[in-house]
Design a protein around this nucleic acid. Structure first.
Ligand code: ZN
Ligand code: ZN
Ligand code: ZN
Ligand code: ZN
Lengths: 131, 131
DNA sequence: TATGCACCTTGTAGCAACTACAAGGTCAAG
DNA sequence: CTTGACCTTGTAGTTGCTACAAGGTGCATA
């Protein structure tokens, strides 16, 4: 299949696919006579793996590790599990951070009783010293 | 005050302060005879405002808007409030997205009953087609 | 007075993970 | 035979900083 088909099949822009190849995340495809990239089902599977890991919030570096690990079918899977656990911890931390952000924004919104910017508590609370 | 003091006072790196000046987020400071930047309390207040808005997750573009608005003390504050409301909506959406990520990662972790990568459901679920 | 050291200056380049051109080649349909 | 969709490479832009490099300044100390 050509790059455009692979792009549609995986919901990835063609430019991103070429970028992954440049970065060594995806193996290079065969070329047709006219130098078009020609992808196999293996490429489809690999790109699917990559995109899914990226959607799950794994960094490119983590995706590289996951790809390398997933090839070693006979190795114990603890290392994979640990990567997932670390990613889970990071996501949980981000949720906590965003939740306090959300609380603060909600407080700010509730605080506005003025209609002039000069008296708006929202503007005031932005101008408050940093904690 | 010099850039280093302002940096400490606001918890901002000197390089970031210069970057804000380049970007027009902060007004340029006066210069001493030896060409050092010389900041006033107004600069301190402005940078504090910027940093707080950034900590609350506002983009640089939004910070620009907030700064412009906060100067027009006689204008109605609805526009500011609306910016905050939009930011709140974005944060809430991010929390939702991360929460489903978290759920999926938790599911993956619970699914691993193998000890070989070849049978690990975690690896399987990464290789699954994209939704 | 020298000298060491922290601080300041400008300018440039790098980070992540793409995304967006530009300028041109290929291929099938009408 | 031309149109239009697709492909190629290469380069540069995005966001919000951060990290140098190479040199100038200011002040305490030997
Ligand atoms: Zn851990
Ligand atoms: Zn208000
Ligand atoms: Zn809205
Ligand atoms: Zn496992």
């Amino acid at each position: 299949m050509r790059i455009g088909e692979l792009a549609i099949a995986t919901g990835t822009k063609a430019e991103t696919i070429r970028y992954y190849e440049r970065e060594g995340i995806l193996p290079a495809a065969d070329r047709t006579d006219s130098n078009y990239r020609d992808y196999s089902d293996n490429h489809l599977a690999a790109l699917t793996f990559v995109r899914r890991a990226r959607q799950l919030g794994f960094s490119m570096a983590q995706v590289r590790e996951l790809l390398a690990l997933s090839d070693r079918v006979d190795n114990p899977c603890q290392v994979v599990d640990e990567l997932v656990r670390e990613q889970l911890e990071e996501v949980e931390q981000k949720i906590l951070d965003l939740s306090s952000l959300r609380d603060e924004l909600r407080l700010m919104l509730r605080s506005c009783e003025a209609n002039r910017i000069g008296e708006c508590r929202i503007v005031e609370s932005l101008a408050r010293p940093l904690r």
